[in-house]
Structure formats: C-alpha cells, structure tokens
C-alpha cells in the first residue's frame, strides 16, 4: 500500500447543520486509521490546511437552496472522481425541504429583518437533482459505521455492505419487541431504510424515518394501519414530513393525508 499514492478526500457543505460531516470526526477509534490511509484534503471543520483538487472522494453534505449553491455543486462534481452524498439533506432535501410545501417568501418575510438581502430558491432539493451521485449515505445524521464501511470498501476496491431493506430487519435481529404491535406506537420502521441500528425502537419510540424510504416502501398500507391505530391525519402528515419530507414516497404519502 505504501507505494500507492493516498487517495484525497474532500468534505463539502451545503444547506445543513454540519452533523453529518461531524460524524467523520466522531469516528474517534477509526479516525487515525482513516487519516493514515487517505489524505483529508479539504475539510474546513477539521483543518484550515486545504489541498487543491481534484479529489478522489467528495463527501457532500446539505441540500441545494440558493442559486449560488446550484452552481457550486457542478464545480465540485467536476473535481470529484467519486461523489457521495451524506445525510438526509443531501439525499432528500432535509428538514428545510418543508419549505417545498409552502411559499418560501412567506417564511423569508417572517424570519429575516431585511428580506431584501435574501437570495433563495423556492425549493430545497437533493444533490442528485443537480449532478450525478455515485453513492448515498442516508440518515439524520449518517451512521458512522456506514461511513467507515463506505471508506473501507472504497479503499479496498469492494462494494460497500450497506443495505437498502427495512429498519424492521435490524430491529428484529437486535431482539427488539415491535413497538407498534406490542404497544400501538406508530412507527415508520417498515418503510424506512436500515442503517441506524433501529435506534428509536430500541428505546421504545417509533421510528422517525431518518434514513428515508427503503427500497420498496409501501407507505399507503402503513398509513392505513396508522389510521386504524387512530393516528389523526395531521399527525400522519407530520410523520412523513420529517427529515426526508421531500423524498418522493414520503412526500406523496404526506400529501395524500393533507386536508
């Protein structure tokens, strides 16, 4: 390995909270090993030292919400061999995509003292709506083990072992009791992609859908069951309108329950 040039990694931020890129720093035990195998070339959250592109791997966090960002992402794509979106913002538009269900100007006038200075797009959109994306890491935030798995797989030229099936499978393998069946707690696990280790159901909470829609989400059937559990329509709308509100299956389901 020593003779081979170390791959260069860059981390980019768009409209987001920084939580996903911090998952890289959160790798703690694996961080030194990562730094040994790759050059962290552009990661302002970690270091001011910036190595010029092109980059072998670009981790892109955040959604596109401004005309400036809509241009910037193309530049990043041009200097990245492999572009990976990390987190619900980059893969689905994030919580800020709630603006997509309303008129953004209404928000601007309420939030900002001088709305005239605000230049924003009507919609918050995922990176894949703008450029080609090589791989997606889901979650709000992403799971650090999935991040390390992706980097390990890329370094060793293999396919990452990252599933697209339901949270339920992780939940059952862990030995959890289904919160919906045993306690009537509405849970998005059956329509949500695995990756979090069934975090919320492990603490007796229903799944919030942080990892977005699984490979074949039957949101209609699940929402019909929520109705049987007497979940009010407003709540069903809110459940599907979380961090992945603009992911198509969740968006359509929330719209179907809107009065």
């Amino acid at each position: 390995m020593a003779a081979v040039k170390k791959p260069k990694l860059a981390v980019w931020k768009f409209a987001s909270c920084d939580g996903c890129q911090l998952s890289l720093l959160d790798c703690e035990d694996e961080l030194l090993a990562i730094a040994k195998e790759i050059t962290i070339a552009n990661f302002p959250e970690a270091s001011r030292a910036i190595v010029k592109g092109p980059y072998d791997i670009s981790l892109v966090e955040g959604s596109i919400t401004t005309p400036h960002d809509a241009e910037r992402i193309h530049k990043i794509r041009r200097m990245s061999k492999c572009l990976v979106t990390i987190g619900a913002c980059a893969t689905a538009g994030g919580i800020q995509a709630l603006r997509n269900f309303a008129d953004v100007n209404d928000f601007v006038s309420i939030v900002y003292a001088n709305p005239a200075y605000i230049e924003t797009l009507n919609k918050s959109t995922p990176i894949a709506d703008h450029v080609f994306v090589d791989f997606e890491l889901r979650g709000c935030p992403i799971n650090k083990y999935q991040l390390v798995e992706f980097i390990s797989a890329t370094l060793n030229g293999r396919k990452p072992n990252i599933g697209t099936h339901s949270v339920c499978m992780e939940c059952k393998m862990k030995g959890n009791v289904c919160v919906m069946v045993s306690s009537g707690i509405p849970c998005l696990g059956p329509v949500t992609q695995m990756g979090c280790g069934a975090l919320c159901p492990s603490y007796n909470r229903g799944c919030f859908g942080c990892f977005g829609p699984m490979e074949s989400p039957n949101t209609k059937s699940l929402a019909a069951w929520f109705e049987r559990l007497q979940v009010p329509s407003d709540d069903i709308v809110r459940m599907f309108r979380g961090f992945n509100a603009y992911a198509e299956p969740f968006r359509k389901e929330s719209e179907a329950h809107e009065k």
Binding site: A33, E149, N161, S166, C168, M169, P190, M214, N218, L222
Partner: peptide, 24 residues
C-alpha cells in the same frame, strides 16, 4: 410492506446472507 418481519419471527426461516468485509 415487504419489511421482512414475518421471516424474522418465523421459527423455520433459515435464510442468510454472507458478506465479506475488510478494515480500513
């Protein structure tokens, strides 16, 4: 829902996936 719960709780299901992985 194709969530797989029935197969996870079934006492006779025995299908497995085999995955190879490497460290960093």
């Amino acid at each position: 829902l194709a969530c797989g719960n029935c197969t996870m709780v079934c006492p006779t299901c025995f299908c497995t996936n085999v995955e190879d992985s490497t460290d960093l």
